[in-house]
Nucleic acid binder design. Structure first.
Lengths: 241, 241
DNA sequence: ATGAAGCACTAATTTAAGTTAATATCGAAT
DNA sequence: ATTCGATATTAACTTAAATTAGTGCTTCAT
């Protein structure tokens, strides 16, 4: 039995309270916890078998690669997040997932998922809600990349990550540990690593935020939010209906 | 009883065959068909009630607006598509949907949805699959906007729309009717309308495609696909698992 | 200890896209 | 008829970001 302080419970519990039956089902849905080294692929684009995981510790990212080698990072997963939930429904996975740090995951047992569909529909609804919420973040990400300049995108990206880290108890309003390299962040916000570096310098020199030694520190979160149109209640809007 | 040539059946039927029971349930899930005039909002961001529709005729788009008035179009819906399926699960809708032409829609009856959950789980799985497929397109859209230049984005966008139109029997390999204004396309691919106009001219002068008088014509689809990394089998990858 | 590799950082230059400004066309409304 | 608004179009100019070309700093393996 896993403690209810586990990130997945923190994440789901922020919106709905799972009954003991549902919590138990969530446990049985998972295989044994395994460790995966940084750099290893958990899911690759075009993969035939359906694999989905719950991320317990460490960070991963989902990305797509273009023929010319360029890579767009679609989302970053932090503890408590699901990995590859969507690929359960599609024939092939449409994106790759790689471990950005050493991670601890548990595989979702697909067979029992259909059983859960019958026995604990409320749990399934909660999972669907979590998937919807993640998709809403991808949409927000698209808006960012499509309509904001490099600085706003970067700040928005780091603010959102901070809000998510805070939600699972791994960050405060002013700081959180962020193991991403500048080139990962650049591929996520859709600019070059070199330009990201300039942007970070600009943010630093404007006393807005610091990103150094794997730590993000917000110096003026209000001004940042203003600057980037970030809505701190936006996570709340995504509560279950 | 609606003919099986309806776009929604064409869309779902391209991947799975609905049994008579499931088809009947799909019918009862829908309210009466209604007409909505071009320019009317079907769903607005922050809306409290959950509304979802099936689009039978005409085009709509889902978009988000920034404080500065800029608008990012997240996806275009054509006949046979669902509208606002995700907002059924979240407390507030996270995006707006507007009719781009006069449209015909039917509202999805939420109450019966839970009934359908029990009685025709396979239909629900099909709907979830359709939702996943749409989300995969949003992801593809994000990659496009994040990592491709204006010409590749534009061509990719028009190729994808063409493939979707062909799928529901409203287009051929070389041409389809497209009622979008240049400024709508620009907001979708994340460039200014003026720059889109330049890009379209360039595509025209390169004998790649024409977009005139509400009609898109591909002059050299192979070269376009090559140029934009478009994968014609990509829709197939999204079949149900 | 010593390269090699990866990451962070900077400056100079080029290019793609945005901005401003203006004209043309068409249909709808008065 | 003609004024208005939306859409499409083009050119001139500006700006943001990419590209190219480096430097310095760790860490890690030999």
């Amino acid at each position: 039995m896993v403690a209810r302080t586990d990130a997945i419970f923190r994440k789901l519990g922020a919106y709905t309270t799972l009954g003991p039956q549902e919590a138990a089902m969530l446990e049985t849905l998972q295989g044994a916890r395994t460790f995966v080294a940084a750099g290893k692929e958990l899911i690759y684009e075009g993969q035939q078998q359906h694999a989905a995981y719950i991320l317990h510790d460490g960070w991963t990212c989902a990305y797509k690669r273009l023929r010319d080698g360029a890579r767009q990072i679609v989302e970053i997963e932090i503890p408590g997040d699901f990995i590859g939930l969507r690929s359960l429904l599609l024939r092939n996975s449409d994106q790759s997932v790689v471990a950005l740090t050493n991670v601890e995951v548990s595989k979702i047992n697909t067979d029992r998922l259909w059983e859960a569909f019958r026995l604990t529909p409320r749990l399934i609804m909660t999972l669907l809600w979590a998937a919807s919420r993640d998709e809403a973040m991808v949409t927000e990400h698209l808006v960012c990349v499509g309509k904001r300049d490099a600085m706003a995108r970067t700040a928005h990206f780091l603010l959102e990550l901070g809000a998510r880290m805070e939600l699972i108890g791994l960050g405060s309003a002013t700081t959180y540990r962020c193991p991403l390299s500048q080139s990962i962040v650049a591929d996520a916000v859709g600019i070059t690593a070199i330009h990201l570096n300039r942007v970070l310098r600009h943010l630093r020199e404007s006393d807005l935020l610091l990103f150094r030694d794997g730590v993000v520190t917000f110096l003026d979160r209000d001004r940042l939010a203003q600057l980037t149109d970030f809505d701190f209640t936006y996570m709340d809007h995504l509560k279950p209906g």
